[in-house]
Design a protein around this nucleic acid. Structure first.
Lengths: 217, 217
DNA sequence: GTCTATAGAACGATAGAC
DNA sequence: GTCTATCGTTCTATAGAC
């Protein structure tokens, strides 16, 4: 029944994958408007018309790209959190471990369907700051449920805090994570070249310490 | 000698100001690439050719816009910090006050040369995440010196920390500030509509408490 | 499935009348 | 200083040969 190229292709999705990889690279550099199909297809070494054949439109390519990158990360987050909840049951999971399950999948970026030379961190940073018109529904689709899940677990770990306090501080924690992802490239400038913005292990560790301390105040 | 319209016009910069105001509004919504001169001039109710007459090019308009918005904020930051240093001399300024001088001018946004209905917060959030090619040098021009100034004062307030620790934690503090500015619109979503993303006074206060606690760990 | 070729619209920038 | 008109380019998307 399903013969459309948008369905699950069984053989040789090579072109499709090449386009997704190139799109990620080009989008990471300049965002949606700056990502022209000419640049993407040139980068992917495929024909200009291939994008519309495989994805239908530029916007659909964009949606496929985001799904391709965000979904594995969020899936990993849920999985890690579930593991930790089980491991600590019936006690609540310590705050620093909860935040580690939130931050680590983003920073390692493993589990991505197509881990090219593309900088996943940059794609996410760019996506999070795209104009509202283009990314309407992005936040809800990828983060609304996840946020609730995490806040619920944090509330269990910090029963003395009111739901409102949890919401404010979780918002600030996520803001720190996102700001760190976006500003990562400027760490070297700020430190006069002494600190390495590419050393994600250290940044991840510093971020966790900072956020947990900020949250507990 | 100076007859160029790019010089300091003495009378009726009304068109120029209208263009700057409209450019801020349009840029805030969609970033540089999405900001078309046609949209800007339509919004400003001036002719399409007026942009090139007053600014020379779209890129120059962009630079003028950023200067117009960033410079007053940074000027106010320096001024507030100077005041606090003087008020506390010869003691160091408390950390929470240092950060208040960094955050408050950004959130209030007063002192802007043209405070239209334009959302200054959004302009800044967008500018900070523009593609590196377009904003090359932006960070250095507007933030490099300011960062040094603030880190120097923070080091005075926290003499027990190493310069490297100061750099990491200041980076994380700035990341939190930027992330908060960018994600502000999502506070309502995260809190299921219970918290108001527009209430900048509360957010500013929560941000300060969070960052100071995160910094001191 | 992959190409070439091109339609149709929008873009930044400029020339020249007033 | 402000207009109209337009040039040359680039964009997304599609039609149709192979």
């Amino acid at each position: 029944m399903e013969t459309s190229p948008k369905g699950n292709c069984s053989v040789s999705d090579k072109t499709r994958q090449r386009i997704l990889g190139a799109a990620g690279k080009v989008f990471a550099q300049g965002g949606y408007r700056a990502m022209t199909l000419r640049q993407v297809t040139h980068e992917a070494k495929v024909n200009l018309a291939a994008v519309n054949y495989h994805f239908g439109s530029k916007m659909n390519l964009m949606r496929a790209l985001l799904r391709d990158r965000f979904e594995p990360i969020n899936q990993q987050r849920r999985q890690l959190l579930d593991q930790q909840v089980e491991a600590h049951a019936p006690d609540p999971v310590p705050l620093s471990i909860i935040y580690d399950t939130l931050f680590r999948p983003l920073f390692t970026g493993i589990g991505s369907a197509s881990d090219n030379d593309t900088n996943l961190i940059q794609i996410i940073g760019r996506a999070l700051t795209e104009p509202a018109e283009f990314m309407r529904g992005l936040h809800k689709e990828f983060f609304a449920d996840l946020s609730k899940r995490f806040m619920s677990e944090i509330q269990r770990s910090c029963p003395e805090l009111s739901p409102e306090q949890i919401q404010y501080r979780f918002f600030l924690s996520v803001s720190t994570m996102i700001g760190t992802v976006i500003e990562q490239v400027h760490l070297e400038t700020i430190s006069d070249g002494k600190l390495d913005g590419k050393n994600l292990d250290i940044i991840l560790n510093e971020l966790n310490t900072f956020v947990v301390a900020g949250f507990q105040q």
